[in-house]
Amino acid sequence: MLSIQNLHAQIEEEEKAILKGLNLEINPGEVHAIMGPNGAGKSTLGNVLAGKDGYEVTEGSVFFKGQDLLALDVEERAHVGLFLAFQYPVEIPGVQMLNFLRTCTNETRLARGLPELSGMDFLKLARAKAADLKINPDMLKRSVNSGFSGGEKKRAEILQMALLEPQFAVLDETDSGLDIDALRIVSEGVNALRDGKRSFLVITHYQRLLDHIKPDHVHVLADGQIVRSGGPELALELEERGYVDYEKAA
């Protein structure tokens, strides 16, 4: 589904290399976890996959379902089925969540050759999905992420994922800023979307998220490269030993 080969990327302005030859293969239905010390390039990977401005790919390739992902615009990547759950979801004051979700959903549907949903149909759908995720439907009336608690923001991300039905989702430090109950609820939401076909890339610093979202593969990212891969047991090992073995020799 996703094939990353020898990916090199830098921050445009600073010309500072962050990813230095990253390789990763993800098959349909798989859940991969990427762990690593701070500054290893974990969030850069998510941003580069989603096409955020300010990053420059200097070498390597990313193919998504056989398509050159790097040639697509941000929104086109979303349309072909890539979803990024943000570490810090952005607040958009004055824009009602429902309106935002409907615009996202309909733009994506149009791009996928599906008819737009009417206001009424969409409202029903959004309410149903929110109920599935145990989200208070009042959230739909509020401004996008404005004044949301950390847990609400992350839940809103999962709701968006449920509506947009991506084939591949990157969860960027989804556990950050969540207490244990919020973590459980968000994880349940993610697990509900694991249908054997959809793939996930879970970026995290801590193992605790992986207690809830069980990965098939775990990778260690350090200094812009995957330096070790293994099964879920690798995460436990990291939890015990920390990242000392992988920190850059300063």
């Binding site: 989603a50 096409g51 955020k52 401005d53 615009d73 941000v74 929104e75 990547r77 979303a78 349309h79 979803f83 990024l84 943000f86 979801p89 952005v90 958009i92 004051p93 004055g94 824009v95 309106n99 935002f100 615009t103 996202c104 959903t105 733009e107 994506t108 791009a111 401004s143 996008v144 968006q160 947009l164």
Partner: peptide
């Protein structure tokens, strides 16, 4: 970026954000 990652083109995203403004 957030709006575009959710599938909106830039023009639509701008209109939405300005309307919120």
């Amino acid at each position: 970026f957030y709006c575009r990652q959710r599938g909106m083109n830039e023009e639509k995203a701008l209109a939405l954000i300005v309307n919120g403004f």
